[in-house]
């Protein structure tokens, strides 16, 4: 067992894990963050995408021990404390950018990562930026539209693209949880 400590969606967790534990399994099975899903288990589909230190990663291709000391954001950490949706979530909802919804958590996290680097991407840049995420329902048209509109909404509102760091989010004073 290896002792790890990470902050997930603003809450600090301390755990002993087997080194072979994949981050996605740690998030789902130990921390109950079941919003992050496993689609392929071959590193191709991107449905398990989370942010680690602000960068998108495929959590099925990261060991939990590699995330020791990191700040992780899952799709469950995007909305405000009052339940208000993150602009990318709202845009996926409004433009109907999902069919079965299985790829959605990963698509949203990949889109948040893309918009943080490129707040005004062209349609081609969106498609290229989301190349690590597959939609088995093939609803790409509306996904691209959702990302474009989320970008526009965030540029007008001046909203921070990445979710505020826990330390900067006063209402979620980082609490310590040992599971």
């Amino acid at each position: 067992m290896t002792h790890i400590s990470m902050t997930v969606d603003g809450v600090r967790y301390d755990d002993d894990v087997e080194p072979r534990t994949l981050l996605v399994h740690h998030l789902r099975d130990r921390l109950g963050k079941v919003g992050t899903v496993v689609g392929c288990d071959t590193s191709n589909c991107g449905s398990c995408t989370v942010l680690m230190a602000g960068n998108s990663v495929k959590s099925c291709t990261v060991l939990a021990v590699q995330a020791d000391g990191s700040d992780v954001t899952t799709v469950e950490g995007l909305a405000g404390r009052d339940g208000s949706l993150h602009p990318v979530q709202r845009s996926f909802h409004e433009t109907h950018a999902l069919q079965c919804g299985y790829c959605t958590p990963g698509m949203i996290m990949a889109a948040v990562d893309l918009l943080a680097e490129n707040p005004d991407p062209s349609d081609d840049e969106i498609r290229e930026g989301l190349e690590g995420n597959l939609c088995r329902c093939t609803g790409y048209q509306n996904i691209v539209k959702a990302v474009r509109e989320a970008g526009a909404a965030m540029r007008t509102s001046g909203q921070q693209v990445p979710p505020a760091k826990p330390a900067e989010r006063p209402e979620t004073a980082a609490q310590e949880v040992t599971t």
């Binding site: 590193s43 991107g46 995408t49 680690m52 960068n55 998108s56 990663v57 495929k58 291709t61 990261v62 990949a110 990562d113 893309l114 930026g129 190349e131 690590g132 995420n133």
Partner: peptide, 9 residues
């Protein structure tokens, strides 16, 4: 090479 997620790691 690969995609944004893989290039981050």
């Amino acid at each position: 090479v690969a995609d944004r997620q893989v290039r981050h790691r």
